[in-house]
Amino acid sequence: MSTSEDVRPVIPAPRTSPENDPPRAAPARRPRLVAVLLAAALALTFAAAGLLVRAHQLADTPATDNRALVDTAATTRVAGDVSSAVTRIFSYTPDGTAATREAARQLLAGKAARQYGELFGQVEKRAADQQLTLTTHVVRVAVSGLTGTDARVLLFLDQVAERRGKPPTTAAAQLTVEARLRADRWQIVDITSR
């Protein structure tokens, strides 16, 4: 008979079968996972950079610089100033061409001033010879482009010509005008007849 001292618990030795082994990551999978995650991070970085560049391109278009789309007061001012100038420089009487020439000297600059100066000499002679009065009315005006100092304005005009002893005639005209702000005054720098 054995004593209690002789009784020892028997602990079975661990089995070495693969079913009982703790799970281990395969060494070949870890580098592959890192490479996939790195590639995904790079792709996201390039996509984000592309989106930022595209957003900058969209925000940096001529339309975003066009104050005619957003600044009502500035648009109204340039439309009024240019309309008034066109009315003054394209209206005259046989004995009032000097006043028209002086208005043009103040309201025109650059290419427009040169073109006007070349043509107005002929107009002055004809106005005196034919006793011609020309009155210009701006019917419609649209500011198609406006920055801080430059404007592009489209004008639709009615011009009434009266010669002594003949009935008046009316003609329609369309002009595109480039204007520049100088010394807080809009001056016409180019005129194109349409």
Rank of each mutant, 00 (worst) to 15 (best):
L37C: 07
L44Q: 00
A73K: 03
D184R: 10
Q131S: 11
A112H: 08
F120G: 05
T135H: 13
R163F: 04
G148R: 09
D184F: 02
A171P: 01
A73W: 06
Q174A: 12
T76Y: 15
A63Q: 15
T97P: 01
L37N: 02
F120N: 02
Q106R: 11
A103L: 05
L37H: 00
D81L: 07
S2Q: 15
R152M: 01
R105F: 03
I11V: 09
P27N: 01
G80P: 13
R32W: 01
V78P: 12
A183W: 09
N66H: 08
V141E: 13
T149A: 06
R182T: 09
T170M: 04
A171I: 07
F90E: 06
R88V: 11
L58C: 08
R185L: 03
S91N: 03
A103E: 03
Q159R: 02
V86Y: 01
V70D: 03
N20F: 15
V189F: 08
T64D: 11
V53I: 14
V123L: 04
R194Q: 14
Q106L: 02
Q131D: 11
N66R: 06
T64K: 09
A127C: 05
V177M: 05
F46H: 02
H137W: 14
K125E: 14
A48S: 04
T16A: 12
T100S: 06
R88P: 13
V177Y: 06
L157I: 05
L37W: 01
L175K: 07
V7G: 08
D65K: 15
G96Q: 00
N66M: 13
A172I: 00
V189C: 11
A79P: 00
A35E: 10
A25M: 06
V70Y: 05
A179N: 00
V189R: 12
A113R: 13
A55R: 13
A40R: 07
V10W: 13
L51V: 04
E102D: 15
D71W: 03
Q159M: 04
V78S: 09
A151I: 12
H56C: 12
D190L: 11
A103C: 01
Q174E: 09
A128W: 03
V143D: 09
